[in-house]
Nucleic acid binder design. Structure first.
Lengths: 226, 226
DNA sequence: CCGGGGCAAAGTGTATACGAAGAACAATCT
DNA sequence: AGATTGTTCTTCGTATACACTTTGCCCCGG
């Protein structure tokens, strides 16, 4: 892609608003800011050591991404991941990831597969070590990688956004079904390597079904909408 | 949902940033601002008669939605809908709309179906009158309605965003395949009414395939990535 | 004790101004 | 011509001001 060049030339500045957005997302996903918690601009500005303007811009985007809800003249509160139920989320993600798996299977090169296998191996090791944080990271990395291999930017960006929410739900529920999950991942990568789109899609669906069941269980009686 | 109440009580203020965002989106979709065109904050502020602050916030969201590209320290330009190819977009939309159709079929009440039929009738009339603008509106309305009936907020908001881009591509290409499209719509609503999820899904896919083919044709040799 | 009424505080929404830094472009010099 | 230097345009972030809402609180009267 020609855009890579431009990106390099143009910008390594990383505006404050983006840093704030990243930090805000991270804080919400990690549960530092809990669902329902009020986020005043002044407070965030102070927390991140910036003025109100970058905070406001970050908040608007966070709203668009569904991490916060903004009520006019009343300010922002951390969204409740249950509004827009978890199962609703998984139904969509299922379709999207299945599509990604299919496309990845159809387009993956040998190097792509090799990269996936590396992640798989690291994941296995981390699972053995009980390093759950690292496992979660690798989990993300794997899924993101597959999205990238799919070569569909729309799919990629949408699924990525959804994926962040999944992480959010998972962390809040502290759900860790790591070992099981990795076995499924291996199936998925095998399918992608085979180049068989149907098989890859089925593997993705199976994985998501299991993940969804686990998340749902963990979230039982979860977060009241307030 | 309980949120409806809150929304009513809380806010009919409609902040400037939202108006600006809506206007900006509309201007881009309608082709008033063309792909690649530079959007300086001052200019937008003047165009919309507001200060730069609301403009900046609107721009950030527009970027998140994919309507503009912001290059740090260089400002915003209208995105080129071809970056992130049209076919990529349709592949995703296909899956999403198919899911929506299935869910809608499974959940639609008699009143839901009646509402769809009203839109269908209005669409037929508008098509007869050659009122293309109205046809496009009703087209949107129908699809949005189906999304709403699906009852899945995630699906709804994602597909909605995608749909705006579809409109954009269509308008830029001035593609109007209205009559054909409405025949397919009737099939779709029939399927939803039947409550048969599979059938609804198939109808949605058929519709999208046709639409995609048309859009692709119209966009041939379209918008250089600049 | 309880239900307002009214008042003050908090916080958002918007405008404006200003300085710093970057990018683009033109002019200048070698 | 090619490189260098300025100049200008613009974004990015800060700060400030102020209107207007919402909210919470206190007090008062029933």
């Amino acid at each position: 892609m020609a855009e890579d060049l431009r990106d390099k030339l143009g910008a390594q500045h990383l505006p404050l608003r983006d840093q704030v957005l990243a930090a805000l997302r991270a804080a919400i996903i990690d549960g530092d800011y809990l669902p329902g918690e009020r986020l005043t601009e002044d407070r965030l500005a102070e927390d991140f050591g910036v003025s109100r303007n970058p905070v406001r811009e970050a908040l608007r985007v966070a709203e668009a991404e569904g991490f916060v809800v903004i009520l006019p003249r009343r300010g922002a509160v951390v969204a409740s991941p249950s509004s827009g139920t978890i199962s609703d989320m998984f139904v969509v993600r299922e379709r999207l990831e299945a599509l990604a798996a299919r496309l990845a299977a159809e387009r993956a090169t040998a190097t792509d597969v090799a990269a996936l296998r590396v992640l798989l191996e690291q994941g296995r090791a981390a699972t053995e070590r009980q390093d759950l944080r690292r496992v979660a990271e690798l989990n993300s990395a794997l899924h993101l990688r597959i999205l990238q291999i799919s070569g569909n930017p729309w799919l990629s960006s949408i699924a990525k956004a959804l994926y962040l929410h999944v992480q959010w739900v998972f962390r809040l529920g502290a759900a860790e079904r790591a070992p099981h999950s990795w076995a499924e991942h291996i199936q998925l990568v095998d399918a992608i390597e085979s180049g068989d789109g149907d098989r890859a899609e089925r593997a993705a669906l199976a994985h998501l079904d299991a993940a969804s069941a686990a998340a749902y269980e963990n979230a039982e009686g979860g977060y009241g909408a307030r």
